[in-house]
Amino acid sequence: MKKLFFGLASIALLFSACNNDTKEITLDQEIDMSDFYVYTDSADDLTNKSNTGKEINKTCGTMSNLNRLLAENPGLEKKMFDIEYHTRKLINAKGKPVGNPGGGGSDGGEPDIDVLRIEDNLNIVIPVYFHIILPNANDVSNAQIQSQLNVLNDDFSKLNTNLLPSGATNFINDATNTDISFTLAGIVRHNDNTSSWGTNDSVKRSYPPVSPSTQLNIWVCNLGSGLLGYAQFPGGSPDTDGIVILHESLPGGSASNYNLGRTASHEVGHYLNLRHIWGDGRCRQDDFVEDTPTSDGPNYGCPAYPTVNCSSTDMTMNYMDYTYDSCMYMFTDGQRNRMRAIFASGGPREIMIQ
C-alpha cells in the first residue's frame, strides 16, 4: 500500500532506532520505517460489525497474542523491527541490479542472491508437525490432517477453485502462486479434557513444539471464546513458535462456514509474516503490502462486491480477511514477496530451506 522508501531523513531516523547488528544499506535502497507498528488496539479485534450489522466475536487471536508477547518480552519489538527492515530491504531491491542505479555495479549488475530467493520459482517446502490435543484425540483422523495439508497446498499454489465475487474484475489478476508448499512431518495425539486453551500459549507449553526451527508446528485443540485460531509471528520464542487452530475448523469439521480448512491458511499467513489485510488499525494502519487496499476492519460472511472502506474497494476474498472459508480465494504478489523474504539469507526462517 504505502511506498517503502523515502529520503535521507528517514534513514537517519532508522539508524537512530537500530543497533549495530542491522546491516548498512546503500542510498538506492533507503528504507522508510516510519509506518511500522507492533502493538494494536485489541479492542478493535474483539467485536466488529459484519456486513449485516450484527456484532460477532473475533475469529483470530493473533494480534491479541502478539500484544501479550510484546508486554512479556521487551526485546521482541526490536526483533520484529529488524525483521521488517530486512523484509523491506529485499522487497525494495527486488529486480534491481546490485550497485548504483543505472551504473551496473562492479559485479556486472548480477542480482543479489537474497533477491533471487524472493523472485525465482524455487518452491519452498515446509514440513508440518500436527499436535492433536482433545478429550479423544482420535476424533481427528489422518484423512482430515491430509485434507488440511491439501487445502494449504491449494491455497498457497493458487489452486483454490472458489470464485471471485461477481464483478470483482479489478482483483482478477491479483491472485498469485506463492511457490510455498507443505508436507507432513508427523502427527502426535494427546487425550486431554481441557475445554478451552485460549491464546496464552498454554497448549504449546503443555505439548512443546517439535524442531520449530525447521518445522511448522500446528496445535489442533479446543480454543473457546469464539476463536478459530492464532499464530506467532517470526521473531518470537522457538518454544511457542507455530499456529493453533480450532479442531472444528479442519476440513469436514463442525465450525459452520469455517470448516473448509482456511483458518489454517489464514494463520500460516501470520506465521509467514503477513498482517491482517486491514492492518489492525482501522484506516490508520497498514498491512505493509503494496498491492492490498486499505480498509477499516475485517469483513465477515460473503460480502457483496464492491465493499468500500477507506475510499477503496476491500479485497474481501483475501485469506487475511475474516470472510467465510468458501469466500476466501487469494494471496497477492506483494504478500507472496513478503512471505518469501523471511526465508532469504538473514531472514528469521532461513534455516527452514537450507
Rank of each mutant, 00 (worst) to 15 (best):
I56T: 12
E24V: 10
I25W: 09
E30A: 15
E24T: 06
K78A: 10
I83D: 03
D41V: 00
I56V: 11
R68F: 09
T40N: 04
I56A: 03
L46M: 13
N20W: 12
N48R: 12
E55W: 09
C60Q: 09
L69A: 12
D28H: 15
K49A: 05
T62F: 03
Y37Q: 07
G75S: 13
D21A: 10
T62K: 06
D35T: 12
N20R: 15
N20K: 15
G61S: 02
G53Q: 03
C60V: 07
T59W: 10
T22V: 15
M33Y: 04
D28Y: 14
P74C: 00
E55H: 09
V38N: 12
I83F: 01
K49H: 11
Y37P: 08
K89T: 03
D82V: 08
A71H: 09
K54A: 10
I25R: 10
L70Y: 03
I25G: 06
K89N: 09
T47I: 09
E77P: 01
I91W: 02
K78M: 11
N73H: 09
N92C: 04
F81I: 02
T26N: 13
K58H: 07
L66A: 00
N57H: 07
N67A: 09
L69M: 11
T87C: 13
G61Q: 06
T87H: 15
D32C: 14
D28K: 15
F81C: 02
